[in-house]
C-alpha cells in the first residue's frame, strides 16, 4: 500500500460538496447531487476498468441493477439491515464481475464491447422474468437505510450517506492505484506485452479490474435502491449503460476524478433542460457533442489546464498519460 498519506484533488472537491446542503435548501438539488454521488461511484469503477485496464463494458448498468436487486431483496425478504446488505450486494456484484471478467480475458475491443452489451441486454430481461423473486415489473420498494435507530429518510441525510461512501471509495481507488496493483494496471494499459515481459500476470489484473469495477457498481446499486426507493428491471437498461459510458468519457478517462465530473454532468445538465418543451434530448445531445468535440480529454482536461494556470499542483497524481488512453485513431492500425 501507499507509504505516504495522499490526499487527492477530487477528495477536496467532495469535501466541498459536504457544505452544499447548508447552502442549498431545495431538496431536488440535494437529491440530484445524491444521484451524482452514486453515479460517480459507478464512474470511478468504470474508469478503473476502461481507463486503466483498457477493457470496455457497454452493459455497466446491469451491474448496478444486480447490486440494487441483491440489496433490495436481502432487506425486504430476509429483513437484513442495510449495512450488511450493502456489503453483500457489493461482494455479490463483484463475484458476477469476476465471472464476466473470465471470458472477457479472451475478448478484445469491439468483441468485448458487444459481449458486454449482450450482458446489459440479458440482465434486465432475467430480472423481469424471474418474477417469483423480483416481482417483475411491479418492482421493489426497498426501505430507507438505518444506522442504529437513525433513519436516513431526508434528502440531506441520504445525500451525506452517499457522499461519505463515495468519498471512501474514491479514496480507496486512489490509494489502490498507488499500490502495486495500480502500477500493474497502468503498465497493462500502456503496453500489455511489455507488462507481461516485466512479469506482470495480465490475466490476473484484467479479471481483477472487472471484479473491482463490478464491486463499485454493486455498492452504487445498493445505494441507488435505497435512495430512490423504487427499482424495477428496466431502470437498468442499455440507455443507462450508454449514459455511464458517456459520463466517464465526458469526465475524462485519464484519472478517476473524471468519474466525478462526468456524473455531475450527466445528472445535472439534463435536469437544467427538462422543461424546454420537445427539446431536452436534442439539447443534451448537443452538449454531449460539444464537450466531446471541444475537449477530447473530457472535463478533466479543462481542470488540468485550470490548475496548471493557477498553481502547480502538490502531490503526484498516479495518472495515465492522456495519449495512451485507448489508442488514438491516428496511430494506424494493425
Amino acid at each position: 500500500m501507499a507509504k505516504k498519506f495522499y490526499l487527492p484533488f477530487p477528495v477536496i472537491i467532495v469535501l466541498c460538496l459536504f457544505f452544499v446542503p447548508l447552502v442549498i435548501k431545495q431538496s431536488f438539488i440535494i437529491y440530484l447531487l445524491s444521484v451524482s454521488a452514486i453515479y460517480s461511484i459507478v464512474g470511478v469503477g468504470l474508469i478503473l476498468l476502461l481507463g486503466y485496464s483498457g477493457q470496455i463494458s457497454i452493459g455497466h448498468a446491469a451491474f448496478l441493477g444486480i447490486g440494487a436487486y441483491i440489496s433490495a431483496l436481502l432487506t425486504i425478504k430476509t429483513g437484513l439491515a442495510f449495512w450488511p446488505a450493502l456489503l453483500l450486494s457489493a461482494v455479490g456484484t463483484g463475484v458476477v464481475g469476476f465471472l464476466i471478467g473470465l471470458p472477457a480475458l479472451r475478448l478484445h475491443g469491439h468483441y468485448l464491447a458487444i459481449a458486454t452489451l449482450g450482458f446489459g441486454v440479458i440482465v434486465p430481461q432475467i430480472l423481469l422474468k424471474w418474477e417469483k423473486l423480483t416481482h417483475g415489473f411491479k418492482g421493489l420498494l426497498p426501505p430507507k437505510p438505518k444506522l442504529g435507530s437513525y433513519v436516513f429518510d431526508t434528502d440531506a441525510s441520504l445525500y451525506y450517506l452517499n457522499l461519505v461512501i463515495a468519498v471512501i471509495l474514491v479514496f480507496m481507488a486512489y490509494n489502490m492505484l498507488r499500490s502495486k496493483t495500480g502500477r500493474a494496471l497502468i503498465a497493462l494499459k500502456d503496453n500489455d506485452l511489455a507488462a507481461q515481459a516485466m512479469g506482470i500476470n495480465i490475466a490476473r489484473y484484467r479479471v481483477m479490474a472487472f471484479t473491482i469495477s463490478a464491486f463499485y457498481a454493486g455498492v452504487a446499486g445498493s445505494l441507488y435502491a435505497h435512495s430512490v426507493g423504487f427499482i424495477s428491471p428496466y431502470d437498468f437498461n442499455l440507455w443507462l449503460s450508454f449514459n455511464f459510458l458517456a459520463m466517464v468519457v465526458i469526465g475524462g478517462l485519464a484519472s478517476i476524478e473524471g468519474g466525478i465530473y462526468g456524473a455531475l454532468f450527466v445528472v445535472l445538465v439534463p435536469a437544467l433542460f427538462g422543461r424546454i418543451k420537445d427539446m431536452p434530448h436534442i439539447i443534451f445531445g448537443v452538449c454531449l457533442f460539444l464537450v466531446i468535440f471541444l475537449m477530447p480529454t473530457g472535463i478533466l482536461g479543462i481542470r488540468k489546464k485550470l490548475s496548471s494556470l493557477l498553481v502547480s499542483f502538490g502531490g503526484k497524481n498516479p495518472e495515465v498519460p492522456v495519449k495512451t488512453v485507448l489508442r488514438g485513431r491516428e496511430s494506424g492500425n494493425e
Partner: peptide
C-alpha cells in the same frame, strides 16, 4: 476528431 481516442468517437 481524428486525433481523439476511439472511445470519444463512439460517444
Amino acid at each position: 476528431m481524428h486525433k481523439a481516442p476511439h472511445i470519444s468517437v463512439i460517444i
